[in-house]
Design a protein around this nucleic acid. Structure first.
Length: 212
DNA sequence: TGTCCGATTGGT
DNA sequence: CCAATCGGACAG
């Protein structure tokens, strides 16, 4: 059996986890079949001081409870009443931090992804491009809230970047309301990868992208 | 209990 | 640029 990422692996600063997840593979073994994708874009959401984080202020609610739980579990939430977003709970012990997985490079179960999303004509590279789209394609929803990613249903396999691949970073997407934290460069992605959502190319400083 | 609004997406 | 769509968060 292939080795999953361990509990210790997640117990380090959230930003380090966000970077290290790039190149790892997310697998979902569901009743409908297996889907998998290589992670190419992430964002780090820190603890109570990070205005953009759902753990901002440190208050535990029904929604953010998973962020306060064990590292290496899934924090799943519904956004805009229609799209699910998937996070990996990470960070130092006791800190409510998580990494949003924003895009995958489809690896397995592409046909099932097309079926789930209802987009028969979608290009493979666009199937998991965006946090809501990847959850739809991977079949991730409320049922996987708090799921232990070291189990056999939804889990992560170690991976690395290819020799030609470079990590780039930029401010996080869609959090303009977060004051000073809106500018923090806590979005990480594989530079130039066509499966990345939003701005993905170096040489385009308008989006605040820089090598990492 | 009432109101406001979002870590998005796709169509105009 | 805007609507979809609904539950979380918070004020009262």
């Amino acid at each position: 059996m292939t080795q999953r990422l361990s509990g210790e692996w997640f117990a380090r600063p959230c930003i380090a986890v966000a970077r290290a997840l790039l190149g790892c593979t997310l697998v979902h073994r569901s009743a409908d079949g297996v889907t998998a994708g290589r992670i190419v874009e992430t964002e780090a959401y820190l603890g109570p001081h990070d205005r953009a984080s759902h753990s901002f202020s440190g208050r535990i609610t029904d929604r953010n409870r998973a962020m306060f739980g064990p590292k290496g579990c899934a924090y799943v939430y519904l956004i805009y009443g229609m799209h699910w977003c998937f996070n990996v709970v990470a960070g130092p012990p006791g800190r409510p931090q998580a990494v949003l997985v924003r895009a995958l490079e489809p690896v397995e179960g592409v046909d099932l992804m097309r079926t789930r999303t209802g987009r028969a004509g979608e290009t493979t590279r666009a199937l998991c491009r965006g946090p809501g789209k990847l959850c739809a394609a991977m079949g991730i929803g409320r049922g996987l809230y708090g799921a232990d990613l070291r189990g056999n249903t939804l889990y992560l396999l170690p991976g690395a970047l290819g020799c030609g691949e470079r990590i780039a970073r930029s401010p996080r997407i869609g959090i303009a309301y977060a004051g000073a934290f809106a500018a923090k460069p806590w979005r990480f992605f594989v530079a130039g990868n066509p499966c990345v959502s939003g701005p993905r190319n170096l040489n385009r400083d308008a989006a605040g992208i820089r090598p990492a």
